[in-house]
């Protein structure tokens, strides 16, 4: 394990940011989101949760897939170049790292999504344990340990230092790149890190959602849950906005469209939301015509369909963003509680 004084972290980030793309939490007028490091970016490692999850790093909100250029009678088609240089995504919380694994099962399954795969191959994930978890967090329910995130490198804030440990070869290479800024951690530092982990786990125990029961929610519950009359009252207030979907680390649906450049077309894909009325619109119309059906889809996907197709793994990681952000106070926890229990 290595360590670095907190006050020196900006020097480390500068080394990384000058060597490769560095994607990390940046504050813009009070709100923190993942963004690229620049010399005057207001890096913010204190805010627990960014508004949007960091999934953009691998699955951007919009990206060009290929471009067509029309010149007289000729059409030239240029595929988008895949990401081919390493980049770092820094300061990712445990829930969001698990979020990447949820996306992996979708995009890396056959047929592999080459755009996603290229980014995943070149992305180095540096995670950060959650020193001060908050009330909307329920990662524990999904067996995620906020005190010991996964990732290529894991960091802990311990007193006035960050302790860092590489977990993979990619992680070792990262620490090599920044070694001038690091010093080896002592046994005492390791003990302090262990104590910090213990502290985090104890705090998490105190939160209202940490002991949420998932009983009744699994891949076999399709019929009971789908037909439950309570979806109506749960979804009555839903605005059909994309706040929950777009802030969620695991929502993975996208749309593919063409943009008219004037002399050709850019074919792009962008996030879509199952809460939107034109989601999966087909030539014959739409198979979900009410907001109740759209609302039900979002939660059934997370808690029933995804586990049915992925060995029981849920596609919610308990980050609590939808809990904090839904403008009307709806969220997955309310769904789990009100419709949970025995089947």
């Amino acid at each position: 394990m290595y360590k670095i004084k907190k006050e020196q972290i900006s020097a480390l980030l500068e080394t990384v940011g000058k060597a490769m793309d560095l994607y990390l939490p940046v504050n813009n007028n009070g709100k923190t989101n993942f963004g690229f490091w620049t010399e005057d970016a207001k890096v913010d490692l204190e805010t627990l949760k960014t508004v949007k999850s960091p999934k953009d790093a691998f699955f951007p909100q919009s990206e060009v897939l290929y471009s067509c250029y029309k010149d007289a009678k000729k059409i030239e088609i240029t595929p988008q170049e895949l990401v081919n240089r390493d980049f770092v995504i820094f300061g990712v919380r445990a829930c969001d790292v698990r979020g990447f694994q949820v996306l992996d099962r979708v995009f890396l399954a056959d047929p592999v999504d080459t755009y996603y795969a290229a980014r995943r191959e070149h992305g180095i994930v540096v995670s950060l344990a959650c020193g001060e978890p908050e009330e909307s967090c329920f990662c524990k329910v999904f067996d995620i340990d906020a005190a010991a995130p996964e990732g290529d490198v894991v960091m802990w804030a311990v007193e006035d230092c960050y302790c860092m440990e590489a977990k993979t070869e990619k992680g070792e290479n990262f620490l090599e790149l920044v070694k001038e800024h690091l010093e080896p951690a002592s046994d005492e530092d390791s003990q302090k890190t262990a104590a910090e982990q213990e502290k985090i786990r104890q705090i998490i125990e105190k939160f209202p959602y940490s002991h949420l029961s998932l009983e009744g929610w699994d891949g076999n519950a399709t019929k009971e849950k789908f037909d439950d009359p309570r979806w109506k009252e749960l979804s009555d207030a839903c605005l059909a906005c994309g706040t929950c979907t777009f802030s969620c680390p695991t929502c993975q649906c996208y749309d593919i469209r063409d943009f008219n450049t004037g002399h050709g077309v850019q074919r792009y894909r962008c996030w879509d939301s199952c809460m939107y009325s034109d989601f999966t619109l087909m030539a014959h119309g739409n198979n979900r015509t009410t907001q109740m059906q759209r609302f039900r889809q979002r939660f059934m996907h997370k808690l029933v369909y995804y586990p049915a197709n992925n060995d029981g793994m849920y596609s919610c990681v308990g980050c609590g963003r939808c809990v904090e952000k839904c403008p009307q106070g709806l969220n997955i926890v309310k769904v789990i509680k009100r419709m949970g229990g025995s089947k």
Binding site: N28, A240, S247, S273
Partner: peptide
């Protein structure tokens, strides 16, 4: 630049 086009402003 922070807008995520979630449409919440419009829908509410």
């Amino acid at each position: 630049s922070r807008c995520i086009r979630c449409n919440a402003c419009r829908n509410v």
